[in-house]
Amino acid sequence: MFSAFIFSGSLMAGFLGALTGLGGGVVIVPLLTLVFGVDIRYAIGASLVSVIATSSGAAAAYVKEGFSNIRLGMFLEMATTFGAFLGAGLAALISTKVIAVIFGIVLLYSAYLSFRGHEPDPEDAEDTPDFLAHSLHLDSSYPEGQVSVPYHVHHVPTGFSLMFLAGGLSGLLGIGSGAVKVLAMDQAMHIPFKVSTTTSNFMIGVTAAASAGVYLSRGYIDPGLAMPVMLGVVAGALLGSKVLANSKPTVLRIVFAVIIMNLGVEMIYNGMTGRI
C-alpha cells in the first residue's frame, strides 16, 4: 500500500513537473518528508534517481534537435559535478534541519522565478566574441527553421562559478537545479534561452549522477522507496510531455508555483521547529 501511495504522489509530481517545465525533483523531497514522513536523506536519494531518469529521457529528445551545446555542457559539467560531489559530501555532515531550511529557501526562490516568468534575452549589443569563450570553442549555433543562428558565449568565469553553486545545491538537496543552471547560461553567459534550457537539461543528468553515486555508496538510496518514486515520476513525465505538445499552461504554472511556495514555507517551519 505504501508503495502505491508513493507511486501516485510521484506520478503527480512528474506530470506537473513536465507540464510546467520546473521538473519533478523540487516537489519529490517535500512530498516524501512532509506528507509521508520519510527521513530527508532517503527522500533526497530517491529524488536524485528520478531526476536522472527524467533529465536523461528529455535530453535524448533535445540532443537530436541540435539545440544543446555539448562542448559548453561538458565544460560547465566540470563545475557542476565537482560541486555536486562536495554538496553530497556536505549532506552527510550537516544536520537534516539545516538541509530542510536550505531546501525551503530554494523552493521559495524557484516559486519566485516561475511567478516572474522568463525575462527577454539581454540586448545583443555586446554580441562580440569573448576571448575565453572563443579559445574554448564554446560559441556555436542553433537551428531556427532552415537557417542556423550563430551565437557567442560571454562571462565564462561567472557562469562557471554559478554552475559550481548549482552542482552543490543538487548534491545537497537532491534536485536538478535546473533554475540556477538556466540562470547562469541565459542571464550571466548571454546564451539564447532555448539553448540554455536544453543544455541545462542535458547537464542535469550528469550532475545528478555525481550526487547519486555518493548517496548510493553512503547507503542513502533505498530500493523500496526509490522504486515507486522513479517509476511514478517517469510515467508522470511521459504523460506530461504528451499533454504539453498542445497546450500552454500559464495557469497551471502559477498554481504549481503557489504549491511550491507553500512547500517552501512548510520545509523552513518544520526544519526550524526540528520536526524534520
Partner: peptide, 8 residues
C-alpha cells in the same frame, strides 16, 4: 538504479 546512474 545502478544502470540509471551509469547512463550519464
Amino acid at each position: 538504479l545502478l544502470i540509471l546512474i551509469a547512463t550519464p
